[in-house]
Amino acid sequence: MIEILAAAAPAGEPPAWLTWLPILGMVVIFWFLIIRPQMRQQKQHRDRVASIKKGDKVITQGGLVGKVVKVDDTYADIELAKDVRVKAVKHTIADIIEPGGKPAND
């Protein structure tokens, strides 16, 4: 009779794949809530940087605001003030300021 009870015990355990189900669920949740939106933002930033043209007002990641004077594949020449130009790597440009944009303190 003890042999019958011992043989029945392993049948009550869940399958091995079922123990991985909560971890798989967490990975899916992380994918849709964190990873996927971040990839979408990176793609939008790449597209914005690729569309920079002469005359655009931009903000660099360092916080400098200026007007694009010249653009090539890797660099953008930005005029910060009269006769003050810097050369910035295009991917360090954080954003493009839309024309007619509202000032930050208004």
Rank of each mutant, 00 (worst) to 15 (best):
W31Y: 10
I35Y: 11
V71P: 06
P103C: 01
I34C: 06
M26C: 13
M39F: 10
Q61E: 14
A16C: 12
L21E: 07
D72Y: 04
K57P: 10
P15A: 15
V69L: 08
P14W: 08
V84S: 12
G63N: 04
G12L: 14
F30A: 11
E13W: 07
G62D: 10
V65W: 05
G55F: 03
R36Y: 08
I35E: 05
P15R: 15
V49W: 00
V86F: 09
V69F: 04
E3Y: 12
T60I: 00
I35F: 12
K82G: 08
G62R: 11
D83M: 07
F30E: 06
F32V: 03
G12Y: 15
V86L: 09
P15E: 15
K67H: 09
I29H: 00
M39T: 11
R48N: 07
I29S: 04
A11R: 10
K43D: 06
I96K: 04
D77L: 14
V84H: 13
I52M: 01
E79C: 05
V49M: 02
G100M: 01
V89S: 09
Y75T: 15
M39H: 13
A94P: 00
I34N: 02
V58I: 06
Q41V: 04
D77Q: 12
I59M: 02
I23R: 14
R85A: 05
V69I: 10
T92Q: 06
P99K: 07
I29R: 01
D77I: 09
K67R: 15
L5W: 10
D47E: 09
V65H: 10
K53S: 06
W17Y: 14
G55D: 04
L80P: 00
G55L: 01
L18D: 14
P10T: 01
P10W: 00
A9I: 14
N105V: 10
V89D: 13
I96R: 02
I96N: 00
A88E: 08
D72L: 04
V86G: 06
I2W: 14
V27C: 14
T60F: 03
W17M: 14
T92Y: 04
V49K: 02
E79I: 04
V65Y: 07
Q41Y: 09
K87A: 13
W20K: 14
L64H: 09
W17P: 06
Q41A: 10
A6R: 11
G12S: 15
L24H: 10
R46P: 03
